[in-house]
């Protein structure tokens, strides 16, 4: 067992304890956490900096607003409701269209007005927030996601996760919903994670429930070899998010809209470690290379170059696999 741990260390695999103690705690200033934990704040920050985000329609902050929900929407029928301080995709409701006395959800099922109001009230009372404190519900643009990943998606929205370390994108993956994940792209709910070559934006590897896979479990399509469109743009967007928030260890979630291109969905100051399994390589390898280059002294473009040069090693890993 010690031998296994030693081999994992050599492979640069990051464990949760090391992530917390050596990276998250040292590089992420606690006082800035509200910037990423409260999605309304993140969105406003990104909008001010001119970064593309899904448009915010309304914020429901108090119980009396729940009854006036429809007026707030100004007639929109396609939207997403999220708890502002939710985590791990909990409490997200995706609405497709208005029905008689109710709504149609993205998965085709109906909910009544009463159900929707109850959901909003639950969000307000903090049922989905990190520590149970009162929360706000935000209503935003429902992403019309790019069809490039249709073959490897079972309902729901695929998104991209980029880990930015000291301002340099260090690892990335594509997250795909499955039937089991209920349309959500969260890996621990049964979503599929696929590694991405940082240089080219081509997918490689693939994992489900911490196990390597090659095919999407629902569509049966090959996961490797897909090209992420606008990849350089996504890298730039991610690095700018890190500059904006000042986090040294940040997870940036990006979604691809058909018309608007890459949009920042949310930021995460405690990004998970499954990305290592999706890419079949450890996070500490790129981290060590970035550490050697003093990234804080470099311009955005230099850092993006750095990110593109990180890849050969990881590419080699996946090639040999």
């Amino acid at each position: 067992m010690i031998g296994l741990a030693r081999r994992m260390k050599r492979a640069g695999l990051l464990g949760i304890n090391a992530r917390n103690a050596s990276y998250q705690m040292l590089l992420n200033d606690r006082r800035r956490y509200p910037l990423v934990d409260d999605k309304v704040k993140t969105k406003r920050l990104a909008e001010e900096a001119g970064l593309a985000v899904p448009e915010l329609y309304a914020v429901v902050a108090a119980h009396w607003q729940v009854k006036r929900f429809e007026q707030l929407l100004e007639g929109r029928e396609r939207f997403v409701i999220k708890p502002a301080q939710g985590s791990q995709g909990n409490g997200i409701l995706v609405i497709d269209s208005r029905m008689y006395h109710g709504w149609r959800k993205a998965d085709g099922t109906m909910i009544t007005d009463e159900d929707l109001h109850y959901h909003l009230v639950n969000i307000l009372s903090g049922m989905y927030s990190l520590a149970g404190q009162p929360d706000e519900a935000m209503v935003e643009y429902r992403v019309d996601f790019d069809s490039v990943f249709d073959q490897v998606t079972y309902q729901g929205v695929p998104d991209l996760r980029v880990i930015v370390y000291r301002g340099v994108p260090a690892m990335a993956m594509l997250r795909l919903p499955t039937r089991a994940s209920d349309g959500k792209a969260n890996l621990h709910k049964g979503g599929v994670g696929v590694g991405i070559d940082l240089t080219t934006g081509m997918t490689c590897g693939g994992m489900l429930h911490d196990n390597p896979i090659a095919l999407h479990p629902d569509t049966g399509h090959q996961l490797e070899g897909l090209q992420v469109p606008g990849w350089q743009n996504i890298l730039r967007l991610s690095a700018r998010c890190a500059d904006l928030t000042g986090f040294g260890y940040l997870g940036v979630d990006v979604v691809l809209d058909r018309k608007r291109g890459p949009l920042i969905l949310e930021l995460n100051a405690r990004p998970g470690l499954a990305i290592q399994i999706a890419n079949r390589t450890g996070l500490e390898l790129p981290f060590a290379r970035i550490d050697a280059m003093d990234p804080e002294e470099c311009s955005l473009e230099e850092r993006l170059d750095m990110a593109r040069q990180l890849q050969p090693e990881a590419a080699m890993e996946s090639a040999s696999a």
Partner: peptide, 14 residues
């Protein structure tokens, strides 16, 4: 900052 025992299991496939 060492690995947790379940991580030895989790990353075993790699």
């Amino acid at each position: 900052t060492g690995y947790r025992l379940i991580e030895l299991y989790r990353f075993r496939s790699l």
